[in-house]
Design a protein around this nucleic acid. Structure first.
Lengths: 241, 241
DNA sequence: ATTGTATGATTGTCCGACAATTGTTAAGAC
DNA sequence: GTCTTAACAATTGTCGGACAATCATACAAT
């Protein structure tokens, strides 16, 4: 006699969330479209409004629905890259990823991203890159701003690839880089200068559509981060956060 | 008299979710620990149980809490990689990513992952890789199984890197690869043979801890996918899903 | 040691209610 | 006719209470 597989019993709120999710993912409900009122959804699905509301909270946190600012009704939306990446970062942080793991990912992924950006960028992308670099170079005191401008530089590079997969996969790495960068940038005196110099070389290569040079300088840039961690006495095997 | 800045008032259910999230991320609540009962949470936070429940649905969908199978109380948990990746894949699909974008990411990311796996794998990792390859090679008919075994092969490779960042960032790519693979594998007669051959070479190189060869064969493997798409008449610029 | 029974705790779902805010419509002003 | 304003309806956020089903636990029976 074969064993019984456990029955997949889902509570009503989960089933409600599932059917609405399906409608959104299959594009039956399009972005910007307003959802029916909660009472109407409850009537159609034959459940209580409380149950509908629990389901809506799930969709809301998945980024599949949102409230337009200053509005009451929920509208269908596409998950924002920043928030998806935040969830990924949080998951990785809770799984005790180490500085070394993040750095290794950066080492592998950033050079091709820089190369792709060099090949695919537009004038506007380049301008954003230059702006980010200038903001970083112009800020010699505040740690927090320097960190944020560094992140913005990487982010601009990701956007310049015009590849959503690259950009979205890239974003959690940036977010995970920030804490170690924050811990390092004041401990290592030459850090700002080296970051600024690398940014300038990379920007120049991107502007010249020189993918190989952009990639090479990015590789050096990432190596520098590791050197900086070691100079700052950060334990590379320690978890982030 | 200065103007009043608009107060950032969030609904109660969001604030409740925020404070519990904070407790979990700061490790004040540890994994496996049981949350207080809903009524108790409602009492402590001074809100209604319905409000607490809406907040719990958010945490549940974020993977921060879960119900142990066959249990009632919710326990603190760490987001599962598979589910985080599923959210990323869904977000990318809703943002109309194209085959080409996914392929380009694979092209950049898979070779270093293969190289890292070659350097970092254990005996168990290699066994999983071999198993996945054998399952693929032994399945000559069912499309669905072939697709799943291909995905499992990539997944095993990601696990063999022993780098959570690489593995988690890798997973959405695998999930996004599946539909196009499913569409291609039956259209292109030689696809199975070429995938199988590449897997064998890669497995061999990983087993020999030969990172360069593993990377090179993976690069060829990924190029083959693109060739397969073109042979199958898939429009590379068309969105996935 | 396993099976059955009793009891309390907890969740899933429902119902109804109400204040606050938003959306809509009708009346009035120019 | 168009714009403003006032009244009204619709919708959400939150609350309180209710109840059945299920889970946890302790205890008795075989």
């Amino acid at each position: 006699m074969s064993e019984f597989a456990p029955l997949p019993l889902a509570p009503a709120y989960r089933q409600v969330a599932a059917v609405i999710t399906e409608r959104i993912c299959s594009r039956a409900l399009r972005e910007g479209e307003r959802l029916p009122p909660e009472t109407e959804l409850a009537r159609q699905l034959g459940v209580n409004r409380s149950t509908v509301r629990e389901a809506l909270r799930e969709l809301e946190c998945s980024g599949l629905i949102e409230r337009r600012p200053g509005s009451k009704r929920m509208t269908v939306s596409r998950p924002r890259h920043g928030e998806v990446a935040r969830d990924v970062s949080r998951a990785l942080a809770l799984h005790d990823v180490t500085f070394l793991e993040v750095w290794e990912a950066l080492r592998h992924f950033e050079p091709p991203i820089a190369a792709t950006a060099a090949a695919a960028h537009t004038a506007a992308d380049l301008e954003r890159l230059v702006d980010a670099h200038n903001l970083f170079a112009g800020e010699n005191r505040a740690t927090e701003l320097a960190v944020r401008h560094t992140a913005e530089y990487f982010r601009a590079l990701g956007a310049a690839t015009h590849n959503q997969v690259l950009a979205l996969v890239h974003e959690p790495l940036i977010q995970l880089l920030e804490p170690s960068l924050r811990a390092m940038i004041d401990e290592v005196p030459q850090a700002r200068a080296r970051i600024g110099a690398a940014q300038q070389r990379i920007t120049q290569a991107v502007g010249a559509r020189d993918a190989a040079t952009a990639s090479a300088w990015m590789a050096r840039h990432i190596r520098d981060f590791r050197t900086g961690y070691e100079l700052a006495g950060i334990d590379l095997g320690h978890r982030i956060g």
